[in-house]
Design a protein around this nucleic acid. Sequence first.
DNA 1: GGCGGGTCATAGAA
DNA 2: CTTCTATGACCCGC
Length: 760
Amino acid sequence: MDGASGQTSAPPENSFDKSRVLDVKPLRTLVPMFPNPPEAPPFVCSAPFGPFPSGFSPFYPFSAAQGAQTSYEGQEQQGGGFATPAVAVPFRSFGTSQVQNDEHSAGVSNGDMGSLSGINGDGFTTRSGKRAGPHLHGPKVRRSGDSSSADVKKSGQNSATGVSPAQKDDGDRETVNYVLMKFDAVRRKVSQLEDAKESSSGVVRRSDLKASNITLTAGIRTNARKRIGAVPGIEIGDIFFFRMELCIVGLHAPSMAGIDYMTVSGETGEEPLAVSIVSSGGYDDDAEDKDVLIYTGQGGNLGVGIISRRDKAVSDQKLERGNLALDRSSRRANEIRVIRGMKDIFNQMSKIYVYDGLYTIQEAWVEKTKSGANSFKYKLVRIPRQPPAFAVWQSVQKWKAGNSSRAGLILPDLTSGAESIPVSLVNEVDDEKGPSYFAYFPTVRYSKSFNITQPTFGCNCRKECAAGDLNCSCIRKNGGYSPYIANGILVSRRPMVYECGPTCPCFPNCKNRVSQTGSKVHLEVFKTKDRGWGLRSWDPIRAGTFICEYAGDVIEKANFDGDEGENNDYIFDSSRAFDSSFKWNCDPGLIDEEAPGDTNEEYDIPVPLVISSKDVGNISRFMNHSCNPNVFWQPIVYEHNAGSYIHIAFFAIRHIPPMTELTYDYDTILADGYEMSFMKDEKQSVCNSEAKRAQDDSSAFTIWVLRRLLVPGATFAVCVTNCREEPGRRNEKEPPTAHHHKQFRLILKPYSINFYDLKK
DNA sequence: GGCGGGTCATAGAA
DNA sequence: CTTCTATGACCCGC
């Protein structure tokens, strides 16, 4: 956020209360060890790979009510309220965020593989100081190109596509997420461009086909090598919104057919074996039991979609192709991946595909259909002890229908009707009855004096603003295109999104008001095992979906730098994110036709925006941190109350399965499973994206140190705010233990480290 | 105006 | 090259 430069007055540099840091005993001693390789080692933690048990979610950072949480009603309010005296903290902290690929719900390296090369300027040297203590955050230092992409590079990344030849054959979690993210970025862009064109009726718009064409041509795909059984990088419960998405990540190759198979050589020579099926309800498959699936063979013009083929009559299915493969598979009893197509509750026309894990065929028989033709039937039974996927969907359905009650439900709607969709409060972990008290309020509250932007003028549209209408000033401010595609999905991250506000004369249902219409998904505040309260959704969430706004009181930065920030776990601070550390948008080079560049994903907030949701807030105050998040934030501005105000809106980075914890990057340093912040108690600026690594004497963990910190004789304070056992790489069945950060908070006293001079 | 059925162009793999 | 498959967006009528 270069825009912050010089705009805030630096706090007094000498008022840093060192005792705050000093009174904590160092648990470990840093011993500098710099092998000083000619090139910086990959700035990435080598976390284990492979799928993790469902239910494990990113570890805990700084948020959410921790420690003494009392009953929902009983908690007295603490803290200094809205404006506490400023106690300036005269050092800065600087962070970078690490790719962590061991998290179930996230499992993506922010999707920026191979896309970063820049080094931040020193633009933040005039930034105001940061809080001390565990909330220490710094401007994010962008991962350098050779490091951020290390996950991909380790197997020889193709810099043009981000996918190496090896990864095209065999993927991993990062590659899968990368491919999916690229695909959807292209698809959103294609949709945006088509939305902007005159709606020529009759033209079939298939953004999915166009996007897959572009990404496949560019070589962006993975797991192209067909295989029986699990596909590396794809986890049970993963959701997809297009058949093409299944194809490009190697889960199910045919773009339309429901049965995927491959020829395998066995005792009896070569024979086809089924590797995956998609149950879409096209045939009358029985989907009652969560572990059993009766699947109908293909062909015979029996499917719902096929009967429209006028020229074809219904006929017997033949034992060939997919049917033959299923027949052979029933004898071999090989693992078959099952993808279940579900109706998308938000878009009746389309489907959501849920990867439900591995099944085997237990029975196969021939059955007469209503129309009298023979069809093949296969009974697939789910292999035991796999994480639930389809079963989760069924549970949610029952909760919604009221057929079964949500276990551990404390409150059906903690917003008391403030949101259009209720937000459940659930604790299945212990007997805590709820988070500490706060007043529910759905948006930000700006104090009267706080004038963050110049008032502007809304558009003059008479109805809904048209997607590409250059006469609409709101559309113009967004670069001539609607920032959202028709279904309300954000197309790209950008410095600022300009929405129509209450003062715009366009219809209230104008598509350019997405963040003002509230969450469309059924959210749930739940007690995590080890990270206090968290937020997740009963509904599947598509990439780019608006989730919620960060609500709370906007605090003047000067006030915030004092005690207010010190004792407040519920802070959103826009200046924490120094820049966008991941690339979510469509690479302009991928689309031929002139497309508006979405190259700039760095936010442009004129003044650091600090929002406290300690006393007043909404569900977003429960969203935990992850360095491998599935949600990002985006500033949005629109007019109301006679001014233009910035709102912080959260959007899904990728498709998020139901009941997966929602997390965003609070912007902190992570090093090998340890969440760290580095600060320097001198007023020198520290900025670099190059990293060096040090190890402590116990070799228990690795610390990455910014190269520019490594000035001989410099004094540092190192603040480790979250610790966790590094998950065993072999024993992946044991979920990583996420320790409560306060139990393990590791604050080293300002520590004299005699760093080697790396410039030699 | 929500639904279900019908229509159309079309993808990847065999 | 053709065939196979049935998707996904849209259209129409009830």
